[in-house]
Design a protein around this nucleic acid. Structure first.
Lengths: 112, 112
DNA sequence: TGAACAGGTTACCAGCCGGTAACCTTCTTG
DNA sequence: CAAGAAGGTTACCGGCTGGTAACCTGTTCA
């Protein structure tokens, strides 16, 4: 059995896009580009996302190996999320995509 | 009202990704990178996609301004799809994403 | 003693997205 | 005159994704 990118199951780009697919994932990414963030920080800084959904997206990113979750013992509980090496290597690609969007799509805003 | 990329509605990357979101779109893209293709060619060359769904994806890409549809009069009917300038400018970005996926995701295959 | 905070979890629901299968129209060819 | 090819369209359906709202656990502080 020969696999080519014609085969949707093995198309690298499709699989990559599926890891980024999710309403809040790009925003999470841009927040994590500048370093680790606590759960509550992300929840505060990303408007209109529910705890449940934010957590779901983070877990999916973690499962994909793009994000690492660290629990720091102590009180109050502190859990931080940060990009893995693999995840960080997406940064330049996402920035170029951002650039493309800003020049080609109206009403859209550049990352800070 | 201030818009920042923190606002999911205006996050450029999210909007860009939403244009590419669709099971068959990356594959369609890679087929169109090498030039215009007839509908029946795409349908023949992309395994397991139904006419209806392929057409849907093409129409969405067209609506997004990434693909142009041309009807050539004559018989048999001939309709070709090709990337717009805007769409073609995504090529290098998608190729980098493909590269990233090939080096980081197992079982995934590079575009030819 | 009970409120507040961090980081979750649970139940439940609506809408979208991709999927199958059959059908349509126009023209050409055997 | 029937079949076939090109490019669709239509009816219908199941599962995934994102959404709301309420609840839980453990510790500290007033």
């Amino acid at each position: 059995m020969r696999h080519t990118y014609h085969d949707v199951e093995f198309c690298a780009t499709r699989v990559a896009l599926s890891l980024l697919a999710g309403k809040w994932k790009p925003i999470i990414f841009f927040h994590l580009f500048s370093g680790p963030r606590r759960f509550s920080e992300l929840w505060r800084d990303i408007p209109r996302v529910s705890k449940k959904v934010l957590l779901e997206q983070l877990r999916q990113l973690e499962a994909a190996g793009l994000v690492e979750r660290t629990v720091h013992n102590g009180f109050p509980p502190e859990v931080t999320y940060q990009l893995s090496t693999k995840g960080a290597e997406l940064a330049p690609i996402l920035r170029r995509l951002d650039q493309w969007a800003v020049t080609h799509i109206e009403g859209v805003v550049q990352i800070s």
